[in-house]
Design a protein around this nucleic acid. Sequence first.
RNA 1: CGGGGCGUGGCGCAGCCUGGUAGCGCACCUGCUUUGGGAGCAGGGGGUCGCCGGUUCGAAUCCGGCCGCCCCGACCA
Length: 448
Amino acid sequence: MARAYTLDDRAGAPHRCDRAMTRLSEYLLPTEKQPPADAEAISHKLMVRAGLIRQMGAGMWSWLPAGWRVHQRAVAIIREEMDVIGGQEMLMPVLQPAEPWRKTGRLEIDELFKLTDRKGSELVLAMTHEEAVTFHVAQLVRSYRDLPLILYHFQVKERDEPRPRAGVLRTREFIMKDSYTFDRDQAGLEERYELHVGAYDRIMQRTGLRFYRVESDVGMMGGLGAHEYMAPCPAGEDQVALADGYAANVEVALKDPDVQQAGEGYTLRGQELRIEPAIEVGNIFKLGTRYSEPLGASYLDENGAEHAVWMGSYGIGPARIVAAAVEQFADEHGISWPRSLAPFAVHLVALGKPGTPERAAADELYATLREAGVEVLYDDRDLGPGEKFADAELLGCPLRLTVGRRSLQSGEIEVQRRRGREDAPAIALGGDPNALLAAVDELWQSLP
RNA sequence: CGGGGCGUGGCGCAGCCUGGUAGCGCACCUGCUUUGGGAGCAGGGGGUCGCCGGUUCGAAUCCGGCCGCCCCGACCA
């Protein structure tokens, strides 16, 4: 009866093997009726209220168990797609010697945290890992035969942000997947870049987010091209300019000669240009030799001639994906996760007092679902129905199953889809477990 | 970094103007009742009022300094 191990959120079953303890009576899910007094952004309010995150200081957040599950969902999707394009996962330190940063000229950046150890050595807390990865490649790559490479990791980034804001949307410490490509020449870089475009498109599609890939300003990086992945949402800090078949960072759009001012707004070749707030969840850059030259990352070609390695760098923030999903799909009752990101597939609500027949039926259903590997959060607390339903809608798992006295009478489990809060056809209670699981799987397929 | 605001129990707040030793709602604990949309009754626990200093017989309250947090803007490899 055990299911195959799978993370396939689009075609697969609503679960993976999951032995985590998920009885709400024993789970740390501190829900709140009221949002924090100073919260503005929807995602900030709801993620705190739903018990996903807690703040420790300005721009410093902890992920509580359910929130971390969501974060790790995003991580798993990203990891799969990076591996598909040949990425090799590794891990580099956050605490680093200042020297490589001096060489690349980035030691002067205000947002870079700098510190000194007890011996007086200068250290930094990395805000990205170009210096680290290039340092290693400079040491390890000698020949054209060693290239190309796609290296990546999920690692904490530290940034002395002048103004952290909006919960987890802009923090001073956050996890980023950053990958780095190393090629012999520009043509190779273009190839690696296109692979990332494909991977990022698939990542974004799999998260279920509404998003745009926009051309971005290469800015002071002096790079050879760059794109940003933008998720439109009310709390977004950036703006995207949109028209049919057109999406661009607003700064880029306003430099476009085809864009004309028209009264209050702008037009593109006669079309109205819409401007929407959005959050930048990912960005990709063609770096060229910006880092390889100062750090001495070079290789010898077939003729024994030395060349600088051509690099690209590619970032994506799982926390921003999570927050953007909250922003895009929340309603007045709470969060409504796309199934690929949901902390649990099924939120099972048991009504009635512990010790009653309806509780026994719910216990049995919980056991059946768990045994099958379905990720289920079981609300077995001794609380009234109102509180349980409210918490379930706040947390936003895609499917809610309810077992109460009524279910025993009708012989059916009630099912609600979180998105739209609509009832789905009830499922027979206590019959063939395989039929029950098939019904849950089928429902899962119908979800966004 | 400029402008604005706020720090009182776990959360949300009142009290401060007009100084007299802290209160409300929710949450929490115990008991009984209740159980299909955030329950009822009774009893109970928890706060150096952000920190330091000053004024005063006496400071959550007045004065000075510092720290922290939020919002708007600037910023955001």
